[in-house]
Design a protein around this nucleic acid. Structure first.
Lengths: 186, 186
DNA sequence: CGAGTATTTGACAGCCGTCAATTACGGTGG
DNA sequence: CCACCGTAATTGACGGCTGTCAAATACTCG
């Protein structure tokens, strides 16, 4: 179970490379994404400490994975796992449910609803403390939510104006009115 | 492996119900979707003959599944499968990849690109014949692509005007310029 | 053949993306 | 410790795509 360190922005895998192992995030954050021919990017998931990513339907990767900030991972070769299917199935199913929920956000929610959903997700995945870090840039958030970075920024400003959240620093969020944020996602 | 017949529009399962079996489509088409509180709907997938759906991360369904038209399915109890994990893992992984590709469409492609991607997907999944049926309504297509039904209709009209496709009947598509359609998705 | 539904088409408004400029932050070196 | 520089984030102006509302047309089924 070898550990690796990934500097900010470094590639972990890319489409076409061998998918012979999967990864556990030890610290930091990983973004998994696809690109269109003209460079438009859709981040399908961020992975935080403790989360597993990198398994594929076949033996090749179909996505890019990069360290968002300084990140360390543990990688496990698929062959080294006694019962691979039993290990991966629950992970794959959870990923599937997450992706399907994300589809609802991208397909049917407007910009404020998307940002609210994102903040609540980050809140819950980082232990439910009202103050937490955003490991990723506004551009990353935009590419995850299918918005422009300017729109993400504008919604942040609006949420601050409504007293729903506070920015302790550019990347540190404090949720003030949890209820209001939840209502926004319906 | 009991077979069931589902009339058009009938419910196959809904959120909260027991997820103790999964389903294979025999004929017809199934839509799987979620709703927001105000009724906005996102269809996460259509399932055509031969495809499997209905497995979940836990023992409860999180989605609605309905027959699009007259549909028949085979249902298998999860407990009746010898090695459940080995059977379901490839299906779950394929579903995950599909969902992630769909995320790119919803997050980063405009209306014509989305419709083109949808038509190509239907084309490929129905055997690659240039003429094929759309089992679902414009509303269903819209809720799958995160568009309004009017926008779907307008894009259809435009594609016909450009000589890229023909509507043999309202639900029967003939793709005339495959190349042009592919280019639209990048 | 007729009723009801599905689809198409049109007019118009609004949300959000793009382009651009300004401000704020953070890290580095003096 | 502070000044400086490069990057990230914010803010503003404006246009276009797409949603909404509404009406007309086409289709399907009984």
């Amino acid at each position: 179970m070898p550990a690796s360190f990934h500097p900010a922005g470094s590639e972990i895998f890319s489409p076409g490379s061998d998918a012979n192992c999967f990864y556990v995030v030890k610290f930091g954050c990983v973004r998994v994404y696809r690109l269109l021919a003209d460079g438009r990017r859709q981040i399908s998931a961020f992975h935080l400490p403790g989360e597993v990513f990198g398994f594929e339907a076949d033996s090749r990767h179909h996505f890019f994975a990069e360290a968002v900030g300084a990140t360390s991972t543990l990688s496990m070769r698929v062959s080294a796992t006694a019962d691979l299917s039993a290990t991966l199935l629950p992970l794959a199913l959870r990923g599937l449910v997450r992706a399907q929920e994300h589809l609802l956000v991208l397909g049917r929610q407007n910009a404020p609803e998307r940002v609210a959903a994102f903040l609540l997700d980050m809140f819950e995945r980082q232990g439910g403390l009202e103050r937490f870090e955003l490991p990723m840039s506004r551009t990353d958030i935009a590419d995850y939510l299918g918005l422009s970075l300017e729109t993400v920024s504008r919604v942040f400003t609006r949420l601050r104006g409504q007293g729903i959240m506070r920015l302790v620093s550019l990347r540190t969020v404090e949720i003030v009115k949890m209820q209001a944020l939840s209502v926004m996602c319906e």
